[in-house]
């Protein structure tokens, strides 16, 4: 379990430093695969149930095959290959990522002081994924990378949940998985629309709606 958590954390550092979108999508797909194996590793040999295996397979199918395929299609259609000039350079965000890893370790250390955690390394990885997801969401310009950032964040939440050993019934787990899937699927569809409407996937150039900048564009569309 610890080795999988370490791989998750490493893939995240890689994500923060990579400018090629295709590579990022593949990394996130790899994370999805790791995340699918993680519950099986956590349960151990003796406790494998049919439901658990089914959940893992569903998770792998959605997170590491279907969603990456959709995002890849969005990327190819829009003709974007690289993330250009993030608000924080790739090197700096990798360094920041290492700092966040230290912060995650510190938080888990603090939490453990009050209550013992079954698998601290996995919890650290979970927190780290959440933080990196937020970092990607904030510092990257492309809407596609923001979607990836959200996926990483979501992976982090699942990892943290697994490390805490919080288990719900299969129906609830499936519902949560379905919600996440539909959410990212909708984001993927919106990527196509953003590409057509704006001719780019730069979310930072979304500035038509703002209270701080009142001047409206001349061809403002008022619809209703």
């Amino acid at each position: 379990m610890n080795s999988i958590a370490t791989l998750l954390a490493l893939s995240c550092i890689f994500l923060l430093g990579s400018s090629r979108l295709l590579m990022s999508i593949r990394m996130v797909a790899f994370q999805g695969l790791l995340l699918g194996i993680l519950p099986l590793a956590a349960a151990g040999d003796g406790h494998l149930s049919l439901a658990l295996i089914f959940l893992s397979l569903a998770s792998i199918a959605l997170k590491s095959i279907l969603l990456p395929w959709l995002l890849n299609k969005a990327m190819v259609d829009s003709g974007t290959r690289r993330e250009i000039e993030p608000f924080i350079s790739f090197g700096a965000s990798m360094l920041l990522g290492l700092f966040l890893l230290a912060v995650s370790g510190w938080i888990v250390d603090k939490l453990q002081a009050t209550e013992p955690v079954p698998s601290p390394v996995t919890l650290i990885a979970g927190f780290y994924l959440v933080f990196s997801g937020l970092l990607l969401l904030i510092t990257r310009r492309k809407a596609l990378t923001q979607t990836l950032g959200f996926l990483v964040l979501e992976n982090g939440v699942f990892t943290a949940g697994l490390s805490l050993g919080s288990e719900f019934s299969v129906m609830v787990e499936l519902g949560i998985l379905l919600d996440v899937f539909v959410g990212i699927f909708l984001m993927g569809i919106m990527l196509f629309h953003i590409d057509r409407e704006f001719d780019h996937l730069d979310a930072d150039r979304f500035n038509e709606l703002s209270d701080l900048e009142i001047a409206a564009s001349p061809d403002e569309e008022v619809a209703e």
């Binding site: 923001q146 964040l153 959410g183 919106m190 979304f206 038509e208």
Partner: peptide, 22 residues
């Protein structure tokens, strides 16, 4: 309405709320 403004609003809504709910 399928225009830029509503697309921008929907995207922000989706991303911010999804992150919050995650």
């Amino acid at each position: 309405h399928r225009n830029r403004r509503s697309l921008e609003a929907a995207w922000k809504y989706m991303i911010i709320c999804s992150v919050g709910i995650a």
